[in-house]
Design a binder for these strands. Structure first.
Lengths: 146, 146
DNA sequence: GTTCCTGCAAAAGCTTTGCAGAAGA
DNA sequence: TCTTCTGCAAAGCTTTTGCAGGAAC
């Protein structure tokens, strides 16, 4: 559980002025493990009685990304999704149910992932997306086949 | 150099009916190493006298993607880009100049990249994006500092 | 002759922007 | 009080869709 004040503190550390909306958006991203869309964030916060607009959600998310608090996941063919920045991890997208899951990435081996062709490049961010079918949907498929 | 007929053959193999527009789009993707946007493809082909519309470009690209001929790169905050499907490779995006470059990925090590957490998943596609600054822009920066 | 592909224009998202009023320090 | 954040609505872009005419086989 992350307290209101610790979120405010986090914003301050990142050089972002506090506001009710900003705190609530960041709090939601911390608590929701679902890589939400902007619209989802807007919907959930509104539902809980917060006075906020979709435009503010977008502006806030862009600000957070700029300051390095979150990541924007842009998945082909649909809205962007937003992910709280923690340790480095990959994203698995299920083509069947659309859910997005984190998976661990071994950073050491990712350094060796590419050959020397990148030695002259300054790499700042690594995004790794895998797509396929999640265990749950594999089970469902099996059920159908019977 | 890829001939008109060999492109037609390729379409046929993928179960796609031929048309002038489809052949030209695929040909352009083969020859252009630049990961073009749909609009760029439309512009270039029109300029060369082909009668084609932007809607057809999009429809064609989506069809190609469905049939596994190309990949859609969705880069946050801008239009999609399209990449002819060859061997597995990663994409480096320069945050300075926006250019997109391929880099080699060692597939064997990418298998070991993630821990066992993915062992129950059926992985079909792997997309790897690195972001940072390309050698050319690093040089430019150095020039400015002097 | 049939099938289905294309161009056009309009529609449909998602995201950003401008501005006046409100909140925060 | 002064700054700047927010909500609203409108605009901006990219992408998709419907339909009639035309190309492909």
């Amino acid at each position: 559980m992350v307290s209101f004040d610790s979120i405010r503190e986090k914003l301050k550390e990142s050089g972002i002025a506090s506001s009710v909306q900003r705190v609530k958006v960041l709090e939601y991203l911390h608590e929701c493990k679902c890589h939400p869309t902007a619209d989802r964030i807007y919907g959930e916060l509104s539902k809980n009685g917060l006075d906020i607009s979709l435009a503010t959600v977008y502006n806030t998310l862009n600000l957070f990304e700029e300051k390095g608090l979150i990541r924007i996941l842009s998945l082909e063919g649909s809205e962007n999704r937003y992910d709280i920045m923690t340790h480095d991890h990959g994203h698995f997208i299920c083509e069947e149910c659309g859910s997005i899951m984190n998976f661990e990435v071994n950073l050491n081996s990712s350094v060796y992932l590419c050959d020397e062709s990148l030695s002259d490049f300054k790499v700042k961010k690594r995004d790794i997306y895998f797509r396929g079918i999640c265990p749950e949907c594999i089970e469902k498929e099996k059920g159908k086949e019977k």
